[in-house]
Computed example of a mutant assay.
Amino acid sequence: MMPQKTGSKSTGQPRLALIVTDVYAFNVLGRGQLEFFRNQGVMLDLYCGGSKEGLAELKRRNLGRVFAIALRREPRPFWDLLALVQLVFFLTVNRYDSVVCSTPKAMLLGSIAGAMGRQKYRVALIRGRAYENYVGFKRWIFVTLDRLALASAHRTIFISHSQHEAFMKDGLSKKILPEDAVPGHGSSNGVDTSRFKPREPSEKAALRQQAGLSEDSFVIVVVGRIAPDKGTRLALKLMRALRDLPNVVCVFVGNFEDDALRAELEDADDARVRHQPACSNVEDWFALADLNLMPSSREGFGNVAIEAAASGVLTVAFDVVGLRDSVSDGISGHLFTYGDIKAVERQVRSMILRRQDLHAEGETARRWAVEHFDQQTVWSNYLSLFLPRHFG
Rank of each mutant, 00 (worst) to 15 (best):
F26Y: 12
S296G: 00
H185E: 14
T6W: 05
A181K: 11
N292W: 01
F78H: 15
F196G: 05
S384P: 10
M294L: 06
V93W: 08
G50H: 00
S217K: 02
D290T: 00
D258V: 08
P198F: 08
W140I: 08
P228L: 04
E345Q: 06
H334F: 14
H161T: 10
L82H: 14
S173F: 07
Y338E: 06
E283Q: 11
K169A: 12
V93P: 07
K237I: 01
P75E: 10
R367L: 09
G254C: 01
H161I: 02
V378Y: 02
L82Q: 15
F391N: 11
V344M: 06
D284W: 00
T11A: 05
G190S: 05
A17H: 06
M294A: 04
K342R: 11
V219N: 09
E266S: 01
R65F: 10
A241D: 10
V327D: 07
P104S: 13
Q209K: 15
N247H: 15
F142C: 08
L358N: 08
V222R: 10
R38S: 04
N27I: 00
L44G: 04
R355V: 01
S111V: 09
D45M: 03
V313C: 04
E203N: 10
A365H: 07
S160Q: 05
A343K: 08
Q375C: 08
S98W: 04
K138G: 15
H275I: 03
L18S: 05
D325T: 03
M1S: 14
A369E: 06
L16H: 04
S332A: 08
A317H: 02
G41H: 01
I331V: 14
V219Q: 09
A206K: 14
M107S: 14
H161S: 13
Y121Q: 11
S217R: 01
A124E: 02
A369M: 09
E165D: 13
